[in-house]
Design a protein around this nucleic acid. Structure first.
Lengths: 168, 168
DNA sequence: TTGGAAAGTCAACAAGGCTGACATAAACTG
DNA sequence: CAGTTTATGTCAGCCTTGTTGACTTTCCAA
């Protein structure tokens, strides 16, 4: 099994298939570890990762519309709606008719929604903080640079703005 | 909403909640983008991500036992068995009775299994290669350091060895 | 005023997790 | 050798979360 000839930038990076494979596997294990603890918290509430994602992004951009959330999450409206309905019924998310465009629904976290959001994001931030602290500032910079390059290709402008922390 | 006082290493890193949050979201989008193309390939074969994982790790450690694979994947044997049965029936994986311990099954990719494994990992390596090339060597080193720190906490020795590229 | 976008709903289905129960063969142990 | 443990496989049933398709209601905008 021969590797293909290396391009110039690959030569500079010494990117062997072995190293790439290791990166791939690390992504798998890191992502799993990364979601493990929030998953456990959610379970006690009878929720899943889909609920977490909805809560997270509603907390991130209070007042966002359902369509915006659909764009961010990349799932079907039926799929999102099921989760959203639960969260609204359970009083974690407030769905208000839009003032400018009354077809739209603007989504907000209620007080208890905020509480759960905080519990989940505290857990995840703590893990991230520990990894960052163990790896050091330079590594963190590199980590972010690679992730950004990995995300770049096909993500919507909306998501790009979200990651940049832009106001909408 | 005040941030908790920063520890010494956090002060050195300037780890604001905002930056951590950004890291968290990047993990989400990066992982999604990372699995998107393999998912599309798998769909044409009628397989899912679970099949991909099985094929990947069998390709990675030819002859591994079912128990080892269970440890790596962290799912139940029933869940794995469903997927494995399909792959064996479809002739992508060969399940051979162990020679030392005849209770065990040693798993190998067949020729067509190897072909699919290559197709999938080529796709993923290409994405990883592009991100690495765009980010540069220093960033790559940092990326790996942070991911390693993120994985560290609770992973089994087996997985740690796997990532180190150890022979078993 | 009418066409179409935004949102919601119902139904049906599939993948892939899970638990529990049980079967079999092989290995180990007293 | 008998009994227990281990490795694996399998059946049944459940849950979450994704999918498509069809349809309704609301309501903005041309």
């Amino acid at each position: 099994m021969q590797n293909a000839p290396l391009s110039r930038s690959e030569q500079l990076l010494f990117l062997t298939d072995e190293q790439l494979r290791q990166g791939i596997e690390m992504m798998f294990f890191a992502y799993r570890g990364f979601t493990a603890y929030p998953d456990k918290i959610l379970e006690t509430y009878g929720y899943g990762r889909a609920h977490h994602r909805a809560i997270h992004f509603v907390g991130r951009k209070p007042g966002l519309t359902v369509n915006t959330l659909l764009d961010i999450l990349g799932v079907t409206k039926q799929s999102l709606n099921r989760v959203l309905r639960q969260l609204v019924n359970d009083g974690l998310i407030d769905s208000r008719v839009g003032t400018k465009d009354r077809r739209q629904r603007n989504l907000y976290l209620t007080e208890s929604g905020l509480a759960l959001e905080k519990e989940l994001s505290d857990a995840q931030r703590q893990r991230m903080r520990k990894a960052y602290a163990a790896a050091g500032p330079n590594a963190v910079q590199g980590f972010r640079t690679v992730l950004a390059a990995m995300i770049e290709p096909e993500v919507s402008t909306l998501v790009r703005d979200l990651l940049r922390g832009a106001e909408t």
